[in-house]
Design a protein around this nucleic acid. Structure first.
Lengths: 197, 197
DNA sequence: CTGACCAACCTACACCCATTAGGCAGATGC
DNA sequence: GCATCTGCCTAATGGGTGTAGGTTGGTCAG
């Protein structure tokens, strides 16, 4: 327990480290204070309350993830971009489970409006560029990508795949295959029978 | 606050009701004790600890959900079954948000080994029966269905779709369309180039 | 009928958490 | 030097989890 110069960023970074080491649910103001060698009320000079601290961890995680996704899809298109994208998500969730879990809660405004949040949406859109998904369907496809990937990681994390064969590794590969196939043949919207120009 | 005869089932039912009314995160032994008109330590005659209570809520929720899914897919096949299945999940999550959230944590053995858990897997398998998914791919498809649907509901719940158009209702429809299309044309596994009989 | 036992409630308590209020000391600016 | 501000502290309040031990009422066996 070394005495770090206390700043908001240092407090958030320590909370993030604790989340990854011991689980997001273990992050409390008192635990972080102990690790930083100060008394709990001292943290209120740097974070508004527990909620703000947890939002801080989410914002940090989102920024880190965005960076990794950007690197993973750089110079790639179509399936290669999709694979890089999906792999970046999964490796992040596995290497930083606590950070990843911080992003699974309803986020405060600071997180929602962050550059990282915008960048993440843009990166998903970039993956879509290599697929013949109609422009007006992009949001649906982005949401489906997010849902499937995050849903898989969430079920994996809570042990949803622990009780049956085959390995979740294999299902992950098949899931990426399935997403690729789906984006290559995105179904037309049966509710929009517009005359085509 | 009426004095219900205390049983394990009554304690779990009250916790489930509280979860739906005020959010899963508000469920505590002390809150449930207050609602039942007893002192907190009295609950330990009926539930082992808080963790067991939360598992009890999850088991109750899983059984309820299984019942609703079973009713929704009864006598249906293919797309109609898929729609019923997906709709049952979503309506349950929306009508009983706290109960639904209880199922998003790593569950204890009692939940994992419950009849309801087994039934849920079987029901998903039943939906698949109306699609040309190879038998050896069933687990992957079941996991992808679960991931996508739960992932969508989770993102919707935390407001992931609140900040952009179109409505999540529309994306939900498109997601079910996409899942239907995917199951109708489930991609072959490129890693299994076996000689075919 | 009586005594032993058990279940289910209670109080008391220890420890933990989040947060507020107010105090103190050091640094900074006038 | 004095006033102000910042960032730490202690004290306090109110909430939570769970254990230990006590009490009461019901049941059963002798």
């Amino acid at each position: 327990m070394t005495r770090t110069a206390l700043t908001a960023a240092a407090v958030v970074a320590d909370a993030a480290a604790l989340a990854d080491e011991a689980g997001f649910e273990t992050v409390s103001l008192s635990a972080v204070a102990r690790r930083l060698g100060v008394r709990t009320p001292s943290l209120y000079s740097h974070v508004r309350d527990l909620e703000a601290l947890l939002d801080g961890v989410a914002a940090l995680a989102l920024a880190e993830l965005a960076g990794r996704v950007a690197a993973a899809i750089a110079g790639r298109a179509g399936r290669a971009a999709l694979e890089g994208y999906a792999a970046a998500y999964r490796s992040y969730a596995r290497e930083s489970p606590g950070r990843w879990q911080s992003m699974q809660r309803r986020a405060g405004d600071a997180v929602v409006r962050s550059d990282a949040a915008r960048e993440t949406v843009a990166l998903t859109g970039a993956v879509l560029r290599g697929y013949p998904v109609p422009e007006d369907e992009h949001v649906h496809a982005i949401r489906l990508l997010g849902s499937t990937i995050n849903g898989f990681l969430a079920l994996e994390r809570i042990g949803g795949f622990d009780h049956s064969e085959p390995s979740s590794e294999e299902s992950w590969s098949r899931t990426v295959d399935a997403l690729d196939a789906l984006l290559r043949a995105w179904p037309a919207d049966p509710r929009h029978r517009k005359a085509q120009p």
